[in-house]
Design a protein around this nucleic acid. Structure first.
Lengths: 153, 153
DNA sequence: GCTTGAAATTGGAATAATTCCAATTATCAG
DNA sequence: CTGATAATTGGAATTATTCCAATTTCAAGC
């Protein structure tokens, strides 16, 4: 799992901004999440990262994910009380919701246009300063076949 | 904690519809949640319920909350990985989002007008059948003073 | 009122994701 | 290179929740 030069820049400057160091572990975890479109759990990320950094510990994966989330480099997504999942954070200002298919377990991104976000903000009392918006929809995607290997989810 | 006759009716018919019995425990847990505006956790509900049903077990509170959620009588709300909270489900068709103040820990209901829900549904691919929508916003409510006793949250 | 089978409740043990911790290792500045 | 600081590590601890087997409650027919 190799991180493209540009992504490496992004990572390093985001970390530096908070006085944090860029390490092999952080690079690799970031690379894995950035390349994942399937909203993997910490465990799944752990096993993917170990392919290139076999000695990394699960604790470090958890630490790193938290660090990357706090730097705004990745997003943490929670469905009910299931294990947290992670996804790359799209470019600044581009919000997306998540659709969780209860049949296949898959997660789909739903792009939220600015107009929708504006409408949402207008619904809140002005004293509420928004830090984070989580919009999770669950249901069934009838176009989504059950995978042959349920483990891939 | 006494359940008003009308609410009792609601509970009994919702349970009966699924072939479930109405019991003292279920009545009492339902009464507590129905009367709570502060989105209590299972633990908080447990201690409130024990005021009138001192012998109830925590397991029963968990079982009952799950039952009531599955009957659509109450809602389960999750913020990040914090303990689940519960609130009465408003009248059918009336959706609401939750605002979680990260400073005080308090939760506020945000009414979502039908027009907003329509807009949201329009954003989803038509193959996605919606079962549940969770919209959680977190931030700081500058009008919300820190409570003197943080335990009340 | 009894009996009986199903459903509900119970206490305590088990689970599992995550966090904590103290010890080691890596990194950067000077 | 060296010291100071930050990061990583393995394993233990935490904690909300679920599981389980045993008991109790219930509703309906006798």
């Amino acid at each position: 799992m190799m991180l493209p030069t540009q992504a490496k820049q992004t990572l390093e400057s985001a970390l530096a901004e908070k006085g944090l160091r860029s390490t092999r572990q952080r690079e690799c975890v970031f690379a894995v999440v950035a390349a994942s479109e399937d909203h993997p759990t910490a465990d799944a990320i752990y096993s993917r990262v170990r392919e290139s950094l076999s000695g990394i510990s699960l604790a470090t994966v958890y630490n790193t994910l938290e660090t990357l989330v706090s730097c705004g480099l990745i997003r943490q997504v929670n469905f009910e009380r299931e294990p947290s999942r992670y996804c790359p954070s799209s470019e600044t200002g581009k919000h997306h919701a998540h659709f969780h298919c209860t049949r296949s377990g898959r997660v789909f991104d739903i792009h939220l246009p600015d107009s929708f976000m504006k409408d949402l903000e207008a619904l809140l009392p002005p004293m509420f300063r928004i830090e984070k918006i989580d919009l999770c929809i669950s249901g069934q995607n009838s176009g989504d076949e059950l995978p042959h290997d349920p483990g891939q989810i």
